[in-house]
Amino acid sequence: MLNGKKVAILGDRDGIPGPAIEECIKTAGADIVFSTTECFV
């Protein structure tokens, strides 16, 4: 579904963290170029 696409991931500390999103995106075939978990206050 995302084969060949480059993805930047911004996770939320109180929501879904970056590594969790990263695992889902990897299974869809995307190339992860940046992944982080931030605290949006």
Results as ranks from 00 to 15, higher is better:
residue 35 S to L: 05
residue 32 I to L: 06
residue 8 A to P: 03
residue 35 S to K: 14
residue 41 V to C: 12
residue 8 A to G: 10
residue 23 E to P: 01
residue 15 G to K: 14
residue 23 E to K: 15
residue 21 I to P: 02
residue 6 K to M: 06
residue 34 F to L: 13
residue 24 C to A: 13
residue 23 E to Q: 14
residue 27 T to H: 04
residue 30 A to T: 05
residue 38 E to R: 15
residue 8 A to W: 11
residue 33 V to W: 03
residue 27 T to E: 12
residue 6 K to T: 11
residue 20 A to Q: 14
residue 22 E to I: 03
residue 29 G to L: 02
residue 23 E to R: 15
residue 24 C to P: 00
residue 32 I to M: 06
residue 25 I to D: 00
residue 19 P to M: 04
residue 38 E to L: 12
residue 24 C to M: 13
residue 16 I to E: 05
residue 39 C to I: 07
residue 36 T to C: 10
residue 11 G to A: 07
residue 40 F to P: 08
residue 22 E to S: 14
residue 8 A to R: 13
residue 34 F to Q: 13
residue 17 P to R: 01
residue 36 T to P: 06
residue 24 C to Y: 13
residue 18 G to T: 04
residue 16 I to N: 02
residue 13 R to V: 05
residue 26 K to H: 08
residue 14 D to R: 12
residue 3 N to H: 06
residue 33 V to R: 09
residue 34 F to K: 15
residue 21 I to S: 01
residue 7 V to M: 04
residue 15 G to E: 06
residue 28 A to E: 11
residue 29 G to N: 01
residue 10 L to K: 07
residue 29 G to F: 00
residue 17 P to A: 00
residue 20 A to T: 14
residue 20 A to L: 13
residue 28 A to R: 09
residue 17 P to L: 00
residue 31 D to P: 01
residue 32 I to E: 02
residue 25 I to E: 00
residue 30 A to F: 01
residue 4 G to W: 01
residue 15 G to D: 07
residue 37 T to D: 11
